[in-house]
Amino acid sequence: MQRIRLRYTKRGRLRFTSHRDFQRAFERALRRAEVPMAYSAGFTPHPKVSYANAAPTGTGSEAEYLEIQLAEVREVEQLRKLLDESLPAGLDITDAVEARTSSFAERLEASVWELRLDGVEPADAERAVAAFLAAEQVDVQRRTKNGLRTFDARGAVIRLEARDAAADRPGDGPCAILRLVVRHATPAVRPDDVLSGLRATADLAPPVPAAVTRLAQGLLDEESGTVTDPLAPDRDAAPAFPTTAAGPSPAGGAQVPEGSA
């Protein structure tokens, strides 16, 4: 039984896809691409797909992961291409490796997020970030299924930096970009919780909703505050006689550029 781990994106307007929507779309893409899936046993067999740690509806992502089990062996890169073509543009399969290690989900220790704050002066954003980082604990509230819940949004934040977006798009109004590295914890601290924290500590209130994108997920290097490609161990564990054209992944892997651009 071949298991394949895939990295995929939620880009542009398709960031409004909910996880349930994605699951349906992905399973249909598997059928169109005629992927020989392994099925669960039972009355209503389901293709074997495990999803990990999906980004919330409305946030974009460059680094979502899932694993599929096949009933027949397939060449990995070819399969990636087929599936990518079968999915709508914006839901793109950017990397694929054959699973050769266990406990993949545990390797998703932390995420790198980018938050684009249109209408926010970079200096204001920097001040707010400094205040947030200076605090021991920043309590925020979020509405959950069980009502309003209060928790700390500071502890899980490994790094938080602000910069000016003007370099990317001169001429437009002010725009600050935040880069956030956050450890996956319980309860999960999401980018909007950090925004609530910035509002709580420094009254930072973006006039329009932030455009949020997950840039990476993976193992956390505590010292440098960076996140490494979770598919790397599978790639490294490849047998000496490669069955697939492994090499660098097509999207340049999940390496996270260091610091700000």
Binding site: R13, L14, F16, T57, G58, P209
Partner: peptide, 23 residues
């Protein structure tokens, strides 16, 4: 009108229904 609509979508239920892009 998408740029203007996009700013409203985070505030509504099931925004995916308004973005198009169906197969």
């Amino acid at each position: 009108v998408f740029p203007r609509l996009e700013a409203l979508l985070p505030h509504v239920q099931k925004p995916i229904q308004y973005v198009g892009g169906e197969l």
